[in-house]
Simulated scan of single mutants.
Amino acid sequence: MFSMVPLLVISLILYTIGLFAGGGEQAFIDRIFLDPTLVSGNKWQITFGDAFLTLSMGLLFIELLRATETGTDSLVNHSLSALLFVAALLLFIIMPGFGNSVFFIYMLMTFLDFMAGFIVTTKAARRDFGVS
């Protein structure tokens, strides 16, 4: 059951919670998450938006690895990934707080997830059936 759900849903849930619990779009995205000092003496300010995108990229990497699997679960996963992209697109266009560069990059990740899933599955099926 868990293998069918796209992991990028976790990012969407976290973004939504952060948006509504964090006091609005800019308060959530621009709030400092970490503020480490590097060996060079530079201060590296990592915002919640940066942390959100980093987490989402990690989940996208796992999703791309999962895209290499074949079977019914993977087809359902790819279909749900397409629905996730459509939902992210609609949120980006319609809902306040979602129309920013951070969420746009996340939306592109959802697009990449479902496109890569379908392409990898198609290529694997062609190889399995010997279609050239």
Rank of each mutant, 00 (worst) to 15 (best):
Q26T: 14
F28M: 10
D30W: 01
F33H: 15
F33W: 15
P36G: 08
T37S: 13
T37G: 09
L38N: 09
L38R: 10
V39I: 15
K43E: 13
I46T: 07
T47S: 12
T47W: 03
F48C: 08
G49T: 05
G49E: 07
A51S: 12
F52E: 00
L53T: 04
S56A: 14
S56I: 02
M57Y: 13
G58H: 05
G58V: 05
L60A: 08
L60E: 01
F61A: 14
F61S: 12
F61Y: 12
I62C: 10
L64I: 10
R66S: 04
A67N: 00
A67G: 08
T70W: 00
L75S: 15
S79D: 09
S79L: 11
S79I: 09
A82E: 04
A82R: 03
L84E: 08
L84I: 08
L84R: 11
F85W: 09
V86I: 15
A87P: 03
A87K: 05
A88C: 07
A88R: 02
A88M: 02
L91H: 04
F92L: 08
M95I: 12
G97S: 08
S101L: 15
S101G: 09
V102N: 04
V102Q: 06
V102G: 00
F103M: 03
F103V: 02
Y106A: 05
M107G: 00
M109L: 08
M109H: 05
M109A: 05
F111H: 14
F111D: 06
F111L: 14
L112F: 12
D113R: 06
M115G: 04
M115P: 03
A116P: 02
F118W: 10
F118S: 13
